[in-house]
């Protein structure tokens, strides 16, 4: 992931810039199910699952991103993957649901810095102003020609989840956007 490590702040002094780096390795699960299963997962995971559209929730490093009305992306530290899987499987026994390990399916980037909205707006069609996309909002969307999951983790920081084979493309577009100041 050399291109990520080599990311530099943007804009030749035009902007205060943005930084792109790889997120820490993560365990990931797609959880899908109905109300009973949702409540079960929340209590087993120790993190409430947002029922409000496009909102993330997290606690003790375990993250649940609302992706659809019956779909959440669960993220945990890589080392906890096995534990989370077994805890959830045990809690959900007998409750109809789908839990699928997608740890290796996605890669994640952290994009941060004062120019982060402009940089992501080089490819993302959503309004990233904090009034429209506040901290804690998450959604599947597009970044140029790649589908991503975008989550605002702080006023000037986003997490970008992307299917593994699209990572070089997303990194490439981000590198250009960082260089151009968006």
């Amino acid at each position: 992931m050399a291109s990520v490590d080599a990311a530099v702040s943007a804009g030749g002094g035009r902007d205060a810039g943005a930084l792109v780096r790889a997120a820490a390795p993560a365990a990931r699960f797609v959880f899908r199910g109905r109300d009973a299963a949702v409540a079960t997962v929340a209590s087993a995971l120790g993190t409430p699952l947002s029922l409000e559209p496009c909102r993330a929730s997290q606690s003790v490093g375990r993250i649940a991103l609302w992706l659809g009305p019956d779909e959440w992306l669960l993220i945990a530290p890589r080392s906890e993957g096995g534990l989370v899987a077994s805890v959830l499987a045990k809690a959900l026994g007998g409750v109809p649901h789908a839990l699928v390990d997608v740890s290796d399916r996605n890669s994640a980037l952290i994009v941060s810095g004062p120019a982060v909205e402009d940089v992501l707006s080089a490819g993302c069609p959503l309004d990233l102003d904090q009034a429209a996309f506040p901290v804690g909002m998450c959604t599947r969307t597009l970044f140029a020609k790649a589908e991503i999951v975008l989550w605002r983790t702080a006023p000037a920081e986003f997490r970008v989840e992307v299917a593994r084979s699209f990572l070089p493309y997303v990194e490439g577009v981000l590198a250009v956007a960082v260089r151009d100041g968006g």
């Binding site: 559209p53 992706l67 659809g68 779909e71 959604t139 599947r140 969307t141 597009l142 589908e147």
Partner: peptide
Amino acid sequence: VHAERWRHVHGCGR
């Protein structure tokens, strides 16, 4: 007026 289906394919998937 036409009733048509759409999918939020790069969003919630519905």
